[in-house]
Design a binder for these strands. Structure first.
Lengths: 127, 127
DNA sequence: TACATAATGTTATTTTATAACAATAAACTT
DNA sequence: AAGTTTATTGTTATAAAATAACATTATGTA
């Protein structure tokens, strides 16, 4: 279990507390009081946290969420559902999907390292 | 079958001819000789082409590819394999994955409209 | 023709991300 | 502990990706 550095911890905390995905510059403006002043400091922390699997990037939104899946130390299989109405993003941790897709990748002759899946639609509340 | 406007056609042609995903500003610099001068002109064409399902956006790369799947008029289910070594991007059109995932979304209580899946790894040539 | 709608042209700006380099801090070696 | 390497941080400047806003032109249609 890796321990976080100061900046990594600050950035992780704010993402982890948030109920929604946060953008890099939103994070920045929220941590300036804690001494993080410039974008590279945020982006570097984000990069490391992603490597560790503590957070994920929602590519379609350029935003970051804490990993909901406690067992996911290194994120090699991520899936999210994204509500187009309320913008809610939920991490889907489904081992069936995971198996199905990694199986598929192997059959396709691909040495697969990771995948990212983003579902768009309407969540239960909004539909 | 929708016909393309002038700018849409120009932008589509260059993406379609390319063997690799193109970024918006690469497209721009390649079509300036044809009279398209500013980013909004490119982005507007891209947006429409995506709506029509003629091209797809590779979210992890901010790049655009022509749809390989002739039957895909509106792109509601996209999947790509991306080689981390040679950067090759291939569209996967697999109805099994599509069925599996749309099925899953329904079970999860989601009214799903589209999804995007991006696989990362090593292609046959590179592994 | 007259009206509405869609597409285009243009300038400026916003948002997202990284390059480059100097300064500290932490970890490792003898 | 002193010296060396490696990782992390701080900082300034800039690059890259995307959009806002508004004027203009083209296209479809009543």
């Amino acid at each position: 279990m890796q321990t976080l550095t100061r900046n990594q911890q600050i950035v992780f905390d704010i993402i982890n507390k948030s109920s929604e995905p946060l953008k890099a510059y939103t994070i920045l403006s929220n941590v300036q009081k804690k001494g993080i002043k410039a974008p590279p400091q945020v982006y570097r922390a984000l990069d490391k946290l992603i490597e560790m699997g503590k957070i994920h990037k929602i590519e379609s939104k350029n935003a970051f969420v804490a990993c909901q899946n406690s067992s996911c130390n290194v994120s090699k299989a991520t899936a999210f559902s994204i509500c187009e109405s309320c913008e809610e993003v939920t991490e889907i941790s489904n081992s069936k999907i995971s198996k199905y897709l990694s199986n598929f990748a192997e059959k396709a002759g691909m040495e697969y390292k990771r995948y990212n899946l983003e579902f768009f639609g309407l969540c239960k509340k909004c539909k």
